[in-house]
């Protein structure tokens, strides 16, 4: 087995490692809280107050405001916790995939189908 170099870059991929986990802790902690319906309701009622409660930094707050998944990942977000944020707006993983790849949802679904051929 080759030595596992985390410096090895894979295009279009951010490995969720210690660097990302440190950067994104507050953001991921807020998103983890969305397992609770009460917390989802509290976020919807006052987004600013909820983000302040979790001490999001400016980059994370902006990415949440923009509902932008690539920005959320750049701010340290992990996709499994971000999915709970997406769930608040009824977004599924095809919506999230389409947004990140700059495609329509239909075009993204066609791409998924094509992977089977």
């Amino acid at each position: 087995m080759k030595k596992d170099g985390l410096e090895h870059k894979i295009p279009g991929t951010t490995i969720f490692d210690g660097t990302q986990a440190r950067k994104g802790y507050a953001l991921n902690k807020m998103c983890f809280s969305f397992n609770s319906a009460e917390n989802r309701a509290e976020f919807k009622a006052d987004e600013d107050a909820y983000c302040a409660k979790y001490a999001l930094n400016a980059q994370q707050r902006e990415a949440i405001r923009n509902r932008n998944v690539l920005q959320l990942i750049a701010a340290g977000g992990n996709i499994y916790y971000l999915a709970k944020f997406g769930g608040i707006f009824g977004l599924d993983v095809q919506d999230v995939g389409a947004q990140q790849t700059g495609m329509t949802k239909d075009a993204f679904k066609a791409k998924l189908l094509a992977a089977g051929r």
């Binding site: 279009g12 990942i73 998924l112 992977a115």
Partner: peptide, 10 residues
């Protein structure tokens, strides 16, 4: 793969 510009990779 769910995340990044490479989302949809199989």
């Amino acid at each position: 793969q769910l995340d990044g510009e490479r989302a949809g990779f199989m």
